[in-house]
Amino acid sequence: MLSDDDQKLAKILFGLLKNATSQAVVKEFLRTKGIPVSAQNWDDLYEKRIEPALKDKKLALKDLRDLLQQVEEFGKQHSFLFQCTEERAIGLLSPARIASIAAAEGLSGLFTHPLDLEMPDEATIVDIRLYRPDPQKTPVSLTIKVVESRDINRLSAVETDPATGELIRRYATTKKRAVNIVHLDHTGLLEFRIASQDNQAKKYSELLWVLKNKVRKFLPDDGFAEVSLSPAKNKILRERDNLSQEIRYSNSTARNEFGAQMQITSASVDENLSSDEGSMSALDRFLERDGEVTGANIYVKLPDSDPPRELRLLISGERNEFAVTVACSAGEYEYVRGKVIAFNT
């Protein structure tokens, strides 16, 4: 039997899953637990499959939370990379330090009971995870999850005021939950992952500033340098022949030392720009004469995926920014991030 509190929590977690992912993903997850998955719709899936599994203890609330973590913490994000020394990272990851700061901020409960907030009034730290697989050694990583509500404005009407002749544009405002992740690992790599916006209401660098302020007590700026991704952008173009099995190009931008800019885009997102010799030759020539790549928008081919799958990767925007613009698993995101870092060395 489920307690009333657990029933309420189960419904909240399920509601968050519905917004974050697809039925196919949830069903696949249930299959791994040996739970039947046939259902006509989301409500059916919950009432006929998930709720009974929870009552029979074939499924636990923790399982739903783990799945939510997987689906909403990776992909459809803009990531910003920073780097500190390993020594500094180990100091910042000190369990005593993290516990002390959490206690001072009234967040100690999050270590064992993350908050399951659907639509917080303001950006809220809902989870703090210090990953320490070996208690005898320093932690491997710190993850802080910050959930916020964003206003989405959509044009609903355009009218002319007959009295004044003014054109009036009316917008309908709805709220949407956004999940942002901050992750520091023991090597000193610090990543801020900001949920993609629906309307481009703000620059991602502004959202980064807000997120950094939110976690500043845990992760102060001192000692962190931005990881410029210029080397990766240039390498992707210059070594495209060697990388043809790994990536497909859709758009490249470049700038030279005299401020001239160049952009080349494939006919559609389905096509491969690098098979267009004329375009690539033009870009090569531009780069040879004091040019640098400023943006590389590519598709990363995921290995061992059947059917073959690609993830869209934008390496553009701020110096240390890249974006995976589609939903993906933790493993897929880590593969793509690994590619970005490998291209950057």
Partner: peptide
């Protein structure tokens, strides 16, 4: 001869000088 034509933006200057932080 190219000196008068040089136009640098903050991102380029960041990379040239390896500034580290904004």
């Amino acid at each position: 001869e190219a000196l008068p034509r040089i136009r640098l933006n903050p991102n380029r200057m960041f990379d040239i000088m390896q500034a580290g932080t904004s």
